[in-house]
Design a protein around this nucleic acid. Structure first.
Length: 132
DNA sequence: TTTCTAACA
DNA sequence: TGTTAGGA
């Protein structure tokens, strides 16, 4: 996470500030939390602390409600969005794996060409038993 | 003073 | 969602 993202996710705002920044009532803000649309931190004597990201999300929630969505509908949007992120992560991991495979194939070709001894030190892959 | 939980004329 | 009670 970049420092910028860390700052935006730092929960330091009390509900009173959030009310002014979003024009929502404390009742609404707490209700959206009960619907799992936001997850503010807690501290002090059980007081809620919100981050700038929470502010953005609350403003988005207002728009979604204006568009006629209910709590469940909005929640689906966010849960689906986090699933997409998870899939992107998996794809990235798969991509890196393919790159490793490419390195291995390259070294196999070098070995078969009789240049096995000039293996690059950058490749930490152990030699294969049976090159094809 | 501000915020919290729970509950409803 | 509003509003209020009773505490922290």
């Amino acid at each position: 996470m970049s420092e910028k993202e860390l700052r935006r996710s730092l929960a330091v705002l009390p509900i009173g500030t959030v009310m002014k920044l979003t024009s929502l009532t404390a009742r609404q803000i707490r209700y959206y939390e009960s619907q799992e649309l936001i997850k503010p931190e807690r501290s002090d004597g059980n007081r809620r602390l919100y981050s700038l990201n929470d502010i953005d999300r609350l403003l988005e929630i207002k728009d979604y409600i204006d568009e006629g969505l209910n709590m469940a509908g909005i929640r689906e949007i966010y849960t689906q969005k986090q699933l997409e992120k998870q899939q992107i992560k998996e794809q990235l991991t798969k991509s890196l794996t393919d790159d490793d495979v490419r390195k291995i194939l390259r070294d196999e070709l070098l070995r078969e060409s009789g240049f096995g001894q000039i293996n690059q030190a950058s490749n930490s892959q152990p030699p294969l038993q049976k090159p094809f």
